[in-house]
Computed example of a mutant assay.
Amino acid sequence: MRNAGSDGFVRFPPRWRNVLVPIAPARAAALGTTLYTASRPLPWAAQNVLWALARVCGGRALPGPREAWDYPLDAGVVDELRRQWVAVVGREPDGVAVYQRTQAARAALTVLLCAGRHSVLVRVRRDPTSLLQERRISEAAQALRPRSITVPELAGHGSAAGWHWTAYRAMATRPHRPLYRLPRGATDEIAALVETVVPRPSGAPAGWAGAHLDVSPWNLRRAGGRTVLIDWEDAGWAPPGADAVYLEAIVTAMRTDRVRSLPSVADHPDAAAYWLPIIRAREPNPNEAHLRDRMLVLLPGPVPA
């Protein structure tokens, strides 16, 4: 596998710049653009145009600053990780794309090994706890086979010098369409998956159930003809309707500055009360602060007449 920084990268997309897309080769650059999921219709359309341009011209067709990048790990550790990853992919990848979290407190290494239909997404952590939970949920999904959603398929896992990784099969080779509501039956199937893996917390109220706890348009996607729900590391137990309330609050906050009542909040006031302190405690980057503030206004429920 080539040195990650040998050909250079472009930061993508223009506003967020949290994905490092390889400038070459073109097939890796196009796949790298899929690490970002636009959450609104117009940006998603623009992402598809840029994806098409990258397929022809490589990363040089994308807007954004150019820079070098290499793995922030010791060279010996990187060499061992690369060896393990190539064994999972089945061949040398064409290149890598890198996703960098916007929340500094949740910083982690996530790379997409670009190899066409053999591509895999690799998450690397020092603490393997969240990796293990996601891996078990993926395995549970293979056993339970939910109909409403698809969970990324586990490709492999391993470790090197105290660094732990889990790899998943790439969902699609073109941008994924964001979704704004959970499909019918998803809440019950999510609960079944989570409750298979995550023990019920001591003292949790009797009505609480398993929930994803990070359902958003960038985690709920339409890819390859399937509805895919990713990023299960926060999954746990919560009041009924927690996922539906969270998703509706995010979608509404993205679309309007107006205060309005949310049907899901009216139906599940306990879920709104659950989310308020969690969202209030967040320290988002400047690009996300307005979204958090709008959600805090929406979640208390209907505005008095």
Rank of each mutant, 00 (worst) to 15 (best):
M1R: 10
N3Y: 04
G8N: 06
V10Q: 10
V10H: 06
P13R: 13
L20K: 13
A24T: 15
A28N: 09
A28I: 10
A30R: 06
L35P: 10
A38W: 09
S39C: 11
L42P: 04
P43R: 04
W44M: 08
W44S: 07
A46D: 13
L53D: 02
C57V: 07
C57Q: 10
A61V: 02
E67K: 06
E67H: 10
E67S: 11
A68C: 06
D70I: 05
D70E: 12
A75D: 14
A75S: 14
G76R: 11
V77W: 00
V77C: 11
D79C: 06
Q84E: 15
R91I: 05
A97R: 14
Y99K: 15
Y99A: 14
R106P: 09
A107K: 12
L109M: 12
V111C: 12
L112V: 12
A115N: 10
H118F: 06
S119K: 03
V122K: 04
R126G: 14
R126P: 03
D127L: 05
L131F: 04
R136G: 08
S138K: 04
A143V: 14
A143F: 04
L144T: 00
L144I: 09
T150F: 04
V151G: 04
P152H: 03
E153P: 03
G156Q: 03
G158D: 05
G158Y: 06
A161I: 05
G162W: 11
W163H: 15
H164M: 09
T166F: 02
A167D: 06
R169D: 08
A170P: 11
M171Q: 15
M171I: 12
H176V: 05
L179W: 07
Y180S: 12
P183L: 04
G185Q: 11
A186C: 09
D188L: 12
E189W: 07
I190P: 08
V194M: 03
T196R: 15
V197A: 06
P199I: 08
A206E: 12
G210K: 01
H212Y: 04
V215Y: 00
V215E: 02
N219P: 08
R221K: 08
R222S: 09
A223P: 03
G225F: 04
V228W: 03
D231S: 03
W232N: 02
D234Q: 11
A235R: 09
G236P: 05
G236R: 00
W237Q: 01
P240M: 02
P240V: 01
A244S: 08
E248F: 01
T252Y: 04
A253C: 13
A253Y: 09
R255L: 13
S261C: 07
S261A: 15
P263I: 06
V265P: 03
A266D: 13
H268R: 00
Y274F: 15
R280S: 13
A281C: 01
P284V: 01
P284A: 01
N287E: 13
E288R: 02
A289E: 15
R294P: 09
M295L: 06
L296T: 06
L299D: 03
G301T: 02
G301I: 06
V303N: 05
P304F: 11
